[in-house]
């Protein structure tokens, strides 16, 4: 069976995972080049997708080119499975590829993400697919593609270091908090997509394969498993990640990336894990944060009677 009809109100039949086979081959070829030259942005013939440019079409095209019936797909946005765009993309693959989906990080063979790397360390054999809005780490320094391409070709990254250092001179530290540039395999400077810099260390020597898709900008790049990924820094100003003074209000974790939730209009706020599945798993294991009852009162969580 090569075609699978799905009900979109008419009798239209689309290819498995939406993309035609020639397009999948083109993307697959680009992925192999991306893996062979880690961190280098491979141009590809990004297709018009039925979701808006800038809403994950690069990641969707990669997932569509790699997914098969044996896969289990997890889709997250801001670390959460229930964010609207994550729900929408998960539905897309359920409809077009009859994809088996999960929220459990460890159970997924493919994880498509926007803006986070899951807290649970990834394992060999898993593939993390990033949605990338602006693949060019040098773009804010030099808007012209013809110029940035030369800078990569000649590994001319001085400008990037100058910009980071200007930050330090002005603010005492590098003020980039997300999409913090990294050097991959000691050669290409790469945009890790707008993940918080908190997640950057997870990319280094990760046993999972990391694939990056920028649909609107028509670029694919990759970090193979066990590859050096170093956040750019200076000896006297080493790279450091975000930290919070309080634990997750729901599960009590002190080592996760936290989202801030405003609880009232009098300055009340709480911090909760951005990785919703990780937080839920911890609560199921019996961990409790200090704000669990308060969270129930603002309908962030609800009490479920134990079976």
């Amino acid at each position: 069976m090569t075609r699978r009809a799905y009900d979109d109100g008419r009798t239209a039949a689309y290819n498995y995972a939406y993309l035609d086979e020639q397009t999948k081959r083109m993307i697959r070829r680009a992925l192999l080049k991306a893996v062979a030259v880690p961190g280098y942005q491979v141009p590809f013939g990004s297709r018009e997708m039925p979701l808006a440019r800038g809403w994950g079409t690069g990641g969707i095209q990669i997932t569509a080119a790699i997914i098969g019936p044996a896969d289990t797909l997890k889709v997250i946005d801001q670390g959460a499975d229930d964010t609207t765009n994550a729900v929408s993309i998960r539905r897309f693959f359920e409809r077009t590829a009859a994809a088996r989906t999960t929220e459990a990080t460890a159970a997924a063979t493919i994880i498509q993400t926007r803006h986070r790397i899951p807290e649970q360390p990834l394992a060999a054999g898993q593939i993390l697919v990033y949605q990338v809005p602006l693949p060019e780490p040098l773009r804010r320094l030099e808007p012209r593609e013809a110029e940035t391409r030369k800078m990569h070709a000649w590994a001319e990254y001085g400008l990037m270091h100058v910009r980071l250092y200007e930050n330090i001179a002005r603010f005492g530290e590098v003020t980039t908090t997300y999409d913090y540039p990294v050097a991959v395999n000691g050669r290409y400077v790469m945009a890790p997509s707008p993940i918080p810099k908190f997640d950057n260390p997870k990319m280094d020597m990760c046993p999972a394969l990391q694939l990056f898709g920028a649909g609107r900008e028509k670029r694919i790049y990759a970090v193979p498993p066990h590859t050096r990924v170093v956040s750019l820094d200076f000896e006297d100003h080493p790279f450091r990640i975000q930290s919070w003074t309080e634990p997750c209000g729901l599960c009590g974790a002190t080592d996760t990336y936290l989202d801030e939730v405003v609880t009232d209009d009098r300055g009340g706020r709480m911090f909760v894990c951005s990785d919703s599945h990780h937080c839920e798993t911890r609560r199921a294991e019996g961990h409790h944060g200090p704000m669990l009852a308060a969270a129930a009162s603002i309908h962030l969580v609800e009490k479920e009677d134990a079976a």
């Binding site: 964010t83 803006h115 986070r116 997300y178 707008p194 918080p196 989202d259 801030e260």
Partner: peptide
């Protein structure tokens, strides 16, 4: 789209 992870940073 939600950007609250980056905004939190």
């Amino acid at each position: 789209l939600p950007h609250y992870v980056d905004f939190q940073g």
